[in-house]
Design a protein around this nucleic acid. Structure first.
Length: 483
RNA sequence: GCGGGCGUAGCUCAGUGGUAGAGCAUCAGCCUUCCAAGCUGAGGGUCGCCGGUUCGAAUCCGGUCGCCCGCUCCA
């Protein structure tokens, strides 16, 4: 437990009001978390940063907020109803767990390598039959009949029955007899696809263009672990970019680069980011990479970039019977657009940023300082205002400044405890700037502005404060780095 | 599901049979002219839950629940 590299992060997140375990007083079901007062600020700021970098900055990207519950046929068309299962078996002897389809795929690959094409083809048919019928008894039969064993310990293989696990949460739409089974969306993307024409027409967009959406998604993960890394309820920041067929690779590369820039601009160092191609492509994808961040427990995915071809739109066209095509006036032809998707896990990005920011500095004399070195744009509280001491009219003066700044930025007024303690408290939640009102302020209306990271102070006039903060908290400077 | 670890204060943890503790944090007050300072005081825990052994259980035994790590998968 002491080895858990996430533990310091989790403790800090809880102690300072960023993330709490969900319904904690009842015993916190796993993989559900609540964002506290500072957590929600940070999370909202990340969303705003994403939205501005995607929608505001790109004139050919527009936003959408689609419903979480959708027509069930959406998920039939998307392939999730059929494919979004885990079929798994355990080896009773070793306790190892495998996915049924992975075991069979592995055998098929082996057969193909040996040139036994017929056997491979026969097995593939069995696999497809098993999956399409979702017949777990038959799956077990397939394993036994083909003598498929535990790849790690073939001599000690004794399978449990094949069990299945649906990753989508089910619920009911309507009441009583008329109720139909619906699903909590497992991804936000489908809401974009089914609105493709609505958006394209009303926003008067021409291909290439994108639709962006931030929203919750739900997956009933079999094993959900690692704090907010794998949650059952999580939030996605997705953008589907609609393009001409054949331009997939071109746009795939462009979006890969742009998304990397987005992370770097906010202070994630290049060496802690890496691009990892997918080994197995999802049922809809033509090309796929993950952007991974080096967490304390190693590199983990925070965003996926996928070339989804025209799979989704074609399927919805087929299942809905509605044409989902675009007339390209330059080419003088209609087609079903292809799609390049950027799909970031908000909670994972949150964790990456939080993890990157959390720093314990060793100061002289065995002292240490815990600082959350967040980019100022993302910090929950932008400005803390302190009277140096709680007397002689300093609090009143400090309140004046606070009351002026709070209409512009998230501010925090505090007069309790020594000034040093107050500085450190705000270091711990990442407040980038502290303004202190001292006796000199009463004489010449100047205050000190302290920088969180350097602890350096500059003395500036009250009338210059707002302009100075505007410079330090400028969106323009940041956003120009991400286009 | 299997294997391992762990449940004591907001956080980190000590306490292995005899009246629940420490550090930090929180709150109130005093004092203070700038980096977790000092002083005084306060609040906060059915020791995860149930049962058993015992004169007596946080501690021993049984059960149960929950969390964390690994195996699998993904945002």
């Amino acid at each position: 437990m002491a080895k858990d590299p996430l533990k310091p992060l989790i403790s800090h997140a809880k102690e300072y009001g960023f993330v709490f375990p969900s319904s904690e007083i009842y015993g916190s079901p796993g993989a559900l978390y609540d964002y506290g007062p500072y957590g929600v600020e940070l999370k909202n700021n990340i969303k705003t940063y994403w939205w501005k970098a995607m929608v505001q900055v790109h004139e050919n990207i527009v936003g959408l907020d689609s419903s979480i519950l959708m027509h069930p046929r959406v998920w039939k068309a998307s392939g999730h109803v059929d494919a979004f299962f885990d079929f798994f078996v355990d080896n009773k002897v070793t306790g190892k767990r495998y996915r049924f389809d992975h075991l069979v795929e592995e055998r098929i690959a082996k057969l193909e390598k040996k040139g036994k094409k017929e056997e491979a083809e026969s097995l593939r048919q069995q696999l497809e039959k098993a999956l399409s019928e979702q017949n777990t008894e038959y799956m077990y039969e397939v394993l036994i009949k083909n003598d498929i064993r535990d790849p790690e310990s073939p001599d000690k293989t004794e399978w449990t029955p094949v069990r299945h696990f649906r990753l989508m949460f089910e619920t009911n739409l309507g009441a009583g007899e008329d109720a139909i089974t619906a699903y909590l969306r497992p991804e936000t993307a489908q809401g974009i696809f089914v609105n493709f024409l609505n958006v394209q027409k009303t926003a008067r967009q021409k291909i290439p263009f994108g639709i962006a959406q931030i929203g919750k998604a739900f997956r009933n993960e079999l094993i959900a672990r690692q704090f907010v890394m794998r949650m059952r309820e999580f939030e996605q920041m997705e953008m589907q970019f609609f393009i001409r067929p054949g331009e997939d690779e071109h746009w795939f590369e462009i979006w890969k680069e742009k998304r990397l820039k987005w992370y770097k601009a906010i202070g994630i160092p290049e060496e802690k980011l890496r691009i990892k191609p997918h080994d197995h492509l999802a049922h809809y994808a033509k090309a796929a990479v993950d952007i991974e961040y080096k967490f304390p427990m190693g590199f983990k995915e925070i965003e996926g970039i996928h070339a989804r071809t025209n799979f989704d739109l074609s399927r919805h066209q087929e299942f809905s019977g509605k044409k989902l095509q675009y007339f390209d006036s330059d080419l003088q032809e209609s087609y079903v657009p292809h799609v390049v998707e950027t799909s970031a896990g908000l909670d994972r990005v949150f964790l990456a940023i939080f993890s990157e920011a959390l720093t314990i500095e060793q100061l002289g004399g065995g002292k240490q300082r815990t600082v959350l070195k967040l980019h100022p744009i993302l910090a929950p509280i932008k400005v803390a205002v302190f009277p140096l001491v709680k007397k002689d009219g300093l609090p009143e003066k400090a309140r004046e400044i606070f009351n002026q700044l709070r209409f512009k930025y998230m501010c925090f007024y505090e007069e309790k405890d020594s000034i040093g303690r107050r500085y450190r408290r705000h270091d711990a939640i990442g407040t980038p700037f502290c303004i202190t009102i001292d006796y000199q302020t009463l004489e010449d209306n100047s205050v000190t502005l302290r920088d969180r990271d350097t602890m350096q102070q500059e003395r500036i006039h009250i009338h210059e404060l707002e302009q100075r903060l505007d410079e330090l908290l400028d969106w323009k400077t940041l956003l120009q780095k991400v286009v």
